[in-house]
């Protein structure tokens, strides 16, 4: 019991550190807010122009699409694990040496930190949600069950994406430079997560790729439930698929790290 308490305290301290870190750079928070508003206005203007002569596209009306797009913008931080850059820079700078000798599981510690960061990003997105609602009157479900199902799907989806990114990040032990890989991952995730276009609008072959890749699990899958594209009745099947992917990616990420970490070289001095 004492061990459990000590472990919880250690990981809890890592979670608590994140808000302090964010607040130390308030100007960045404001910048993010303005950039998000710009993004939102562009997306709404774009979709409104797209629907100018159409009542529905791929079975979605303008209201449904805007609902989805605005909610996807609010919950988009779920796809930003940033792991490729973070682990990569740790390896490059040698900080990884200090992290590895800490009596913590590095992967779990960074996961806990990421969950805290994402939760905080959602909090910071509340003004965006409010302004989005005032400007565009999007709808959110009133049923608490839908919200619960959404949260479960979001958590599993984010965890499995974290494991996927962890595997990618392990490449830094071999290459020691990850900028290109990080940007590549960002570009692929931007499209295949469904942040810009609902997966329902993609042609079959692109939808298949999106389903195979893990990015949509952290955004499209949960947000499509919240925006009414996916019915609540379909969730048990989706959860099962998400859990299976989480177990497989979790195991693979542990194995990859155990192999990759043998490559680490930390310069002394």
């Amino acid at each position: 019991m004492a061990v459990l308490r000590r472990t919880a305290r250690a990981y809890g301290a890592m979670m608590a550190m994140v808000p302090k870190l964010f607040m130390a750079y308030q100007i960045w928070v404001w910048m993010q807010f303005i950039v998000q508003i710009i993004s939102l206005v562009i997306l709404v203007s774009f979709w409104s122009a797209v629907y100018a002569g159409e009542s529905s596209l791929s079975g979605l009306t303008l209201a449904q699409t805007l609902n989805y797009i605005i909610l996807a913008q609010i919950f988009a931080p779920s796809t930003d694990t940033n792991m490729v850059f973070e682990l990569g820079y740790m390896v490059r700078s040698g900080q990884i040496g200090m992290r590895l000798i800490q009596p913590l599981d590095l992967q779990l510690a960074l996961y806990v930190q990421k969950v805290s960061e994402i939760a905080l990003a959602f909090v910071f997105n509340l003004p965006l949600a409010l302004i989005g609602w005032l400007l565009f009157r999007y709808h959110v479900p009133a049923d608490p069950l839908v919200w619960l199902a959404f949260l479960v799907s979001l958590l599993i989806g984010n965890a499995l994406l974290f494991c996927f990114d962890w595997i990618l990040a392990c490449a830094s032990f071999y290459s020691t430079e990850v900028w290109g890989m990080g940007m590549l991952r960002y570009g692929v995730a931007l499209f295949f997560s469904g942040a810009l276009v609902p997966l329902a609008m993609m042609p079959g072959w692109l939808r298949t790729i999106s389903t195979i890749l893990p990015f949509s699990q952290a955004l499209y899958t949960p947000v499509s439930l919240l925006s009414g594209i996916t019915p609540l009745s379909g969730m048990p099947r989706i959860w099962l698929a998400q859990l299976a992917a989480l177990v497989a990616l979790g195991a693979l990420s542990r194995f990859t790290f155990s192999r990759a970490v043998r490559q680490v070289t930390v310069q002394g001095g």
Binding site: V50, G180, L184, L196, M201, L206
Partner: peptide
């Protein structure tokens, strides 16, 4: 990494372009 870096923005732009094409 130079090659990946030089082409990385290509992938980011590809995401936007593909989205416009899909719509």
């Amino acid at each position: 990494n130079f090659l990946i870096g030089a082409s990385s923005t290509l992938f980011v732009q590809a995401a936007s372009i593909l989205s416009i094409w899909v719509v």
